[in-house]
Design a protein around this nucleic acid. Sequence first.
DNA 1: CGGGAGGTGTGATAATAATCACGCTAACGC
DNA 2: GCGTTAGCGTGATTATTATCACACCTCCCG
Lengths: 211, 211
Amino acid sequence: MVFAQAIQKTFPQFETELAEKMEQEAMFRQIPADTELMRPGQFIRSTMLVLDGLIKVYREDGEGNEFFMYYLKPGDGCALSMTCMVGQETSTIAAKTVQNTELIMIPLEKMDEWMSKYKSWYHFVVKTYRDRFEELLQTLDSVAFRNMDERLEFYLKRQRKIIGSHIIPITHQEIAQDLNSSREVISRLLKRMAELGKVKLHRYHVEILKL
Amino acid sequence: MVFAQAIQKTFPQFETELAEKMEQEAMFRQIPADTELMRPGQFIRSTMLVLDGLIKVYREDGEGNEFFMYYLKPGDGCALSMTCMVGQETSTIAAKTVQNTELIMIPLEKMDEWMSKYKSWYHFVVKTYRDRFEELLQTLDSVAFRNMDERLEFYLKRQRKIIGSHIIPITHQEIAQDLNSSREVISRLLKRMAELGKVKLHRYHVEILKL
DNA sequence: CGGGAGGTGTGATAATAATCACGCTAACGC
DNA sequence: GCGTTAGCGTGATTATTATCACACCTCCCG
């Protein structure tokens, strides 16, 4: 029952019975930082819930380009594995841990079964869909309507929120990759932001002053 | 029961009992072409299923810009109203009919209730989420990774698929709006496509030759 | 039938972003 | 410590897209 308690700590909305069911049916996994969770074309036979750590979800095209979508943090679920989204031809979703991560994998059959059995599970799944959809819309907005300088600010704000700190440990190169831009462009924009007093630049990390 | 039959014709996957329940609980609406269905900030108290016609769903920023997301056709449901996505601050979803449209509105309470009662409803809702998510990802891809010429081709292919015809009744101005570009850019790109034999240009419509 | 509105064609210019070509420097391993 | 690697700064150039300006044409309406 110690595992069920860990689940309920991160997912307090689940009733005890559901948490205990999870202890029986789900698989617990610990994954080190910087590990690929989903590879293009991989089949997904289970959905996953994040207990601890941080997962980055991004889109890949076929030519080595990436595009950051959103993070999954403790208490989040993966909307993609819930819909069993696999077998893309053109582009694919990729996910990797950015911190040491603990998650539980739930077989898809159980996911369906619990939908009608546990109200809290049903609400969790619906909320997961809504939250991911909303984040994806925000990402779409920024790339559809905004220039790179505004997209960069939006990106940094998001990082600050998820990291919970004004120090964002990231290189210019990594930012460029997430925004599908180039390192030089990001460096120049950051420099201008520094001149405006919005950020302070360091090697290997960016300090957010006022955004 | 004539209404229940109409539902089952467009949604054959629903069991008869569910279709009859819908006849009792849902509201049938006929909406003329070119009508705004969702206005920014509007509250959504019901989800909707499309029986006939065509609905365009797009994103709006605060400055008069638009960005096409996807169409809803007969047999589709609206993932947004299912998650009851309202009260955005920054950007908003907008939807309008492009043809005369018949749809049924289902109160949100019923939607929840039927989830555990009818397997076919549950599968429909999950499928709706997955399909919309996938379409949104494709939209995101094109704007994140592709230049305007490729985006335009993708857009025209999509139109052909949903319209079911090689004649796309649309003006350059409307395409520019959907792609958040400008009329001159679209005109020039279309001209180049015409030179390559991919399309044939007409006033008020575009004829797709080979894409 | 005359005139206006809206759709389209096209050149010129500007703004934005990507790419190329460097040089500099902090961090790390041997 | 010394050399290598990776992160960063920056100018020059190019590519892409947006914007401005204006001409022309078709459709429609009075």
